[in-house]
């Protein structure tokens, strides 16, 4: 169980780097395993984004998380965007690059949301083709993140876990296991979380994401969880995280908090909590 050894990212807890926290990350140099950025926020020519990222990168290992490649999209990949990503990765040499099992652009329009895909053979073939193109263009293996979704497609012929398993097997990409997404999707679609996790290709997990969600209800009053990244990690998600670690051993773990961004100390406290689970897991393994 050394899946994350393949990524080069430390097996420790990290946080999503927000511009609101730039000064504190540099000034206070807190104990963090790594930081993660959203690639698209740094595809600008110059100015403060690069100024701060260079300084943060001098102290912390980096993971780059893409949110705009539309890798599951029906249309051909955006070559210009891929090239820009390659430039960013060449400049900052992150340990990991990850993207989403989703689509976000169509007909030249960018929707700024991670939109769901029907789990069909056609989608699988298209994704494998796109992942191969991305891995070729970026010159590295990528991690793909399991989605949080609010609807399912009647045309799907695979379960989500089966689909991800096939994808990993055929394309050779790794899995970014977002435990919050897994929990959200299981609640939103009446799935059993343990069964879902057990059916995933856990050997391929290179990184874990944890985040907070927002509670809503569907038209029948059943819980509908929204992937808001705007609060602390839920108790149920911590539990799921602990049980994932029991299966996988310790893995690089990111706290994502993108909405209602908290004081930096709050974010670090969440990371410290994840670090606690990681350390306990490492002790059990030893």
């Amino acid at each position: 169980m050394v899946a994350s050894g393949e990524t080069g990212l430390p097996v420790a807890a990290g946080v999503g780097l927000k511009p609101e926290h730039f000064e504190q990350v540099i000034g206070k140099a807190p104990a963090l395993g790594f930081v993660e950025i959203h690639a698209e926020n740094y595809l600008v020519a110059g100015g403060p984004m690069h100024h701060y990222l260079e300084r943060v990168c001098a102290r912390y290992p980096l993971s780059v998380h893409g949110v705009g490649l539309s890798i599951g999209g029906e249309e051909p990949l955006d070559r210009g965007h891929l090239q820009a990503l390659r430039g960013l990765l060449d400049r900052y040499q992150p340990a990991v690059f990850s993207e989403h099992l989703a689509w976000s652009s169509h007909g030249g329009i960018f929707f700024n949301d991670l939109l769901p895909l029907p789990y069909t053979r056609r989608t699988l073939e298209r994704l494998c083709e796109h992942i191969e193109q991305v891995q070729d263009a970026l010159g590295r293996r990528i991690l793909l993140e399991n989605p949080s979704t609010y609807v399912e497609f009647s045309g799907s012929s695979y379960s989500e876990a089966e689909f991800i398993g096939e994808l990993v097997k055929r394309s050779g990409c790794g899995l970014l296991l977002d435990v919050n997404n897994a929990y959200i999707s299981c609640i939103n679609h009446g799935r059993d979380l343990d069964e879902f996790i057990a059916a995933l290709p856990l050997h391929a997990v290179g990184e874990i994401h944890l985040a907070g969600f927002h509670r809503d209800r569907d038209s029948l009053g059943a819980p509908l969880l929204i992937d808001s990244h705007g609060s602390a990690v839920d108790r149920a998600v911590w539990q799921a995280y602990e049980s994932v670690l029991e299966r996988t051993g310790p893995l690089s773990t990111l706290i994502e908090w993108d909405n209602d961004i908290p004081p930096f100390e709050t974010l670090c406290a969440e990371a410290a909590r994840a670090q606690g689970y990681l350390s306990a897991c490492a002790v059990r393994e030893a």
Binding site: D113, Y150, V151, F153, S154, G155, H189, A222
Partner: peptide
């Protein structure tokens, strides 16, 4: 072609994306 596990309105669930 959108469904939900419990028969709830897929339109209301789709509205989450529209809203996002």
């Amino acid at each position: 072609d959108l469904t939900s596990w419990n028969g709830s309105d897929p339109g209301q669930r789709f509205a989450v994306y529209r809203n996002n």
